[in-house]
């Protein structure tokens, strides 16, 4: 396997009303080609900030990023803007309210010149159907969609661009588990067929357990643990990771047993 993205000693500070917020604190990790790397952690620990830095929306205060071996510039060329896509945590603000869903998808295809012009209108319908929405949602406006419907439009748009890396920030938080399963299967299919790479940010550890190859755990702007998914869940090394897994609400008895075992270890260590 080769490295697609590497994040090297990246920090990010924000200044707000004279206060300094250390959103990211000297973080380094690599994303391998074709893997799904999950990022989990505290609310406010810098997950969306690192996503925005990978996309070039925010500039890092210090540190660097490389993509396919070359340093990522602060101002991204069109090539990079196609190669790296983002599904934002808040899908409503990422869709232009005055544009129909179809027009938003079409714009993505036009900007990056994806596929034959004549086939693009049809393609927007297929993209919607792939995420479980009817093709005639093309005519709808973002404000007339439910939370989960908007989220799926944002996913469809990111997948339309034939990118190499897709950063997904809480992409399934507004989906029922059946639709979620469908979307996750679609992501897996694209990973297998196109070798697509994902950075998957989520609070849903049960999803992470079932789709991620590796997991990175963030706490207060720092990367506190990184490892293979199975190792993170059966033998977490960091106390914060153990606390997280120990607090997952579950629906079955076997799951509760795993959770209780980790909680015991945690209190044994304390």
């Amino acid at each position: 396997m080769s490295t697609l993205l590497s994040v090297n000693n990246v920090s990010k500070q924000f200044e707000v009303n004279g206060r300094t917020v250390q959103a990211i604190d000297a973080v380094s990790f690599a994303v391998e080609k074709g893997e799904c790397l999950a990022i989990v952690g505290e609310s406010g620990s810098g997950k969306s900030t690192i996503a925005n830095i990978i996309l070039g929306i925010y500039a890092a205060t210090s540190g660097s990023l490389t993509f396919n071996g070359s340093e990522l510039p602060a101002k991204r060329s069109k090539e990079y803007r196609r190669a790296i896509q983002l599904v934002q945590q808040n899908p409503l603000s990422s869709l232009n309210p005055r544009r129909s869903i179809g027009a938003s998808l079409r714009l993505a295809l036009d900007v990056h010149d994806i596929g034959e012009k004549a086939g693009r209108a049809k393609r927007t319908g297929e993209l919607l159907e792939d995420v479980g929405l009817p093709a005639d949602f093309r005519r709808r406006s973002p404000s007339s969609l439910s939370g989960g419907q908007r989220q799926r439009v944002a996913i469809a748009r990111a997948l339309a661009c034939q990118s190499e890396l897709v950063v997904l920030d809480e992409p399934t938080s507004a989906l029922d588990v059946l639709v979620q399963a469908r979307v996750l299967k679609l992501l897996k299919e694209l990973k297998d067929s196109r070798g697509l790479t994902y950075v998957f940010i989520t609070h849903d550890l049960s999803v992470v357990r079932n789709i991620a190859d590796r997991v990175a755990v963030f706490e207060r702007g720092k990367l506190v643990e990184l490892g293979q998914t199975s190792a993170i869940f059966t033998n977490p090394q960091n106390p914060y990771t153990r606390r997280l897994i120990g607090a997952v609400p579950v629906v079955s008895r076997e799951e509760a047993a795993l959770r209780d075992r980790l909680m015991e270890q945690e209190s044994g260590n304390a």
Partner: peptide, 11 residues
């Protein structure tokens, strides 16, 4: 269809 923390893949 609820994914399980004990693994087993997407149902």
């Amino acid at each position: 269809a609820v994914p399980r923390i004990t693994g087993g893949g997407i149902p």
